[in-house]
């Protein structure tokens, strides 16, 4: 009994430590951002590294996601002969839920994991201490540009991904279900409002903040060589996935 309590206590304590660490990191970042202290060159470098380089994987993910959504709505569409609803079903699912979540998960894997690995190996090879020794503060130099770059990159990638997913939906709808482009487009334009797109983009941007905070937190907290870096990356992507799924629920309830 005491052992169970002890184990529970350890889990709760470590959970509090991780969440507290992330919140603290978020506050520091916000504080430095308000004071306008952010290394411009680092920001541009990170935007390229996180945004431009992720374009292929995000586009491919979006393409297949659009296809899968068409297939799933297609089952309904065929049963009820409701071909006019395909654009609405695909558009709504992609813009509001599946797009932000799947692109968020891919972004977390591509950029968040990479960021944690990058920061982690900087910690392991004592480069962060080296920065401090040169009187360069790690937060404005390392963290603020990364957080900012991730949020901006995710916003742009989401716009691109949504477009690719809808286009992919159109193509696969034609190929697999024989719904022509015009009726897909008509039902899409009729039923989808700007609000749907806005909700998706808001969510995605928030996911990017979560990914940024988890990956920076776990990256900076690395201990113990190569094995430690691997663990940190693993923990960062798991925490990001959990936060994406849970916060998605809250957003959906709040923004109807």
């Amino acid at each position: 009994m005491t052992r169970a309590l002890l184990a529970l206590g350890t889990v709760v304590l470590s959970l509090c430590r991780e969440i507290g660490g992330m919140a603290l990191l978020g506050c520091y970042t916000l504080f430095e951002l308000i004071r306008g202290r952010c290394d411009g060159r680092e920001l541009v470098r990170n935007l390229y590294k996180m945004g431009v380089v992720s374009v292929p994987i995000v586009s491919l993910t979006a393409l297949f996601t659009g296809g899968t959504m068409v297939i799933q709505s297609g089952i309904f569409v065929q049963r009820f002969q409701a071909y006019g609803l395909l654009g609405w079903g695909t558009g709504y699912a992609v813009l509001r839920e599946v797009g932000p979540i799947l692109i968020g998960l891919m972004f977390s894997g591509r950029v968040g994991a990479n960021n944690a690995a990058d920061l982690g190996s900087m910690v392991v090879t004592e480069q962060v201490d080296g920065l401090r020794a040169l009187a360069i503060e790690p937060i404005p130099f390392l963290i603020v540009p990364r957080v900012l770059a991730m949020i901006l990159a995710m916003f742009c990638l989401l716009v691109l991904g949504d477009a690719v997913a809808i286009a992919g939906g159109m193509v696969f709808g034609k190929l697999l279900l024989g719904v022509d482009f015009a009726s897909f487009y008509a039902s899409f334009v009729d039923a989808i409002k700007l609000w749907d797109l806005t909700v998706g983009l808001l969510k995605g941007t928030f996911f990017a903040l979560m990914i940024a905070l988890t990956s920076c937190h776990y990256g900076l907290a690395v201990k113990g060589g190569a094995v430690g870096v691997g663990h940190a990356v693993n923990d960062a992507v798991v925490a990001a996935a959990l936060l994406i799924m849970v916060s998605d629920d809250i957003w959906t309830m709040v923004l109807r």
Partner: peptide
Amino acid sequence: SEGVGWAT
């Protein structure tokens, strides 16, 4: 260690 991060 950088390699392990990349591989992950």
